[in-house]
Design a protein around this nucleic acid. Structure first.
Lengths: 205, 205
DNA sequence: TGACGCATGTAATCCGTTACATGATTAT
DNA sequence: ATAATCATGTAACGGATTACATGCGTCA
């Protein structure tokens, strides 16, 4: 919050939107967390109300003490580098479900990464290059774009892996079925696109 | 927890290590969270004690109900896709500190990603390909490896950007200083490696 | 005049971490 | 002996989400 207010004065409402939009992918915060936090920061003398507007709007700025504090935090404390991703963790459990379900899961992941990619690319396009803050927003978004692109490519590779496994399994089942019972009627199999060659080679293989 | 126990019976201690090692990068949990959770899952009939060992060791397995539940969770619920990364978020605030500090920050990030990359690569190397769980662990680690590699490359690109900015700024300062005061003695400037050409081109540029 | 977006707050609850607390087994 | 590792638990606290709650301003 201090860092964001250092760029320009903002209200709690503005901060909330900022977390949901430009900072999505890095951090998020709800208004229910932001408003009490603003009160605490003001109490501590790190921010102050710069302007009051209509509908009770209060726009906050960092004080000198607040600016000093956020700089101290940036240079003197180590970031918590533990990362948590439910979506990523689920991948390790996909062996528990049917290949068609796993494939569907990855398809949605691909969709998600594709949307993020599009959003971030338009954010970069809409960005100036005048202030240092904009310069660093661009550098940060570059990381996000590369990240989303990489994971999008990974989902495509992984879906290909599933299709290959499935094709292999079907071939075996067909062979066995042909040997055991040529005349019996079987229920139709779930439909998935046929295995395709990858555009992207798996890393480390 | 249900998903992990589905692969093989484990104790709370085993689960804790699992979260710190093979599942690092996806999820983490401390023993203080795991033990109460195991008690709750047992109470709910989703797991049961499969074996008791020395030192009070209790090895749990999923019950049929537990297996059903984790499968239901995987196919019927949407993952929470909001991601949080303090380390990534800080990048957007690096304009607040000196370029040398920003550079140092990115250097540590590079170190971190490099370590993760090495760890994950050795994890893949130590992995069999016999069970479905191993198959999916490999697919998951592939995502982690690509992710770490991408961010490692990004840090190198970003450090290059800082060095370029710094070189540009110094050139301007030198020119101004030469014009204004040719004889005055100035303090030595902070040392950073000279700007280098990138191996990796910035995305979208 | 009614819907939508702006705008701010609080309360209950849950999830997760840190710290506290204990003890058995194994290897040096 | 004693240090390291295995092994399990609880308590206090803090951070974050969900739900509850209210009201103004603007535009169709």
């Amino acid at each position: 919050v201090l860092g964001l207010l250092a760029e320009r004065p903002m209200s709690g409402y503005d901060l909330t939107k900022h977390f949901d939009e430009s900072l999505a992918g890095a951090w998020s915060a709800r208004h229910s967390q932001i408003y009490p936090e603003l009160a605490r920061l003001q109490e501590a003398g790190l921010i102050r109300v710069a302007e009051e507007g209509p509908r009770g709007r209060k726009r906050y700025t960092v004080t000198e003490a607040g600016l000093k504090e956020v700089r101290r935090w940036l240079v003197a404390t180590e970031p918590d580098r533990t990362s948590r991703s439910e979506a990523y963790m689920r991948v390790f459990l996909l062996w528990l479900v049917e290949p068609t379900d796993a494939h569907e899961y990855l398809r949605r992941q691909a969709e998600f990464h594709d949307q993020n990619l599009t959003r971030m690319e338009s954010q970069v396009a809409a960005l100036g290059e005048t202030t240092p803050a904009e310069r660093w927003t661009r550098i940060g978004l570059e990381a996000g774009i590369r990240h989303e692109r990489t994971l999008l490519q990974w989902t495509q590779w992984a879906m290909g892996e599933i299709r290959r496994d499935l094709a292999r399994r079907r071939a075996i089942e067909r062979r066995q079925a042909a040997e055991a019972d040529r005349a019996a009627v079987r229920p139709p199999e779930p439909t998935l696109p046929p295995p395709a060659e990858d555009q992207v080679a798996p890393a480390g293989l």
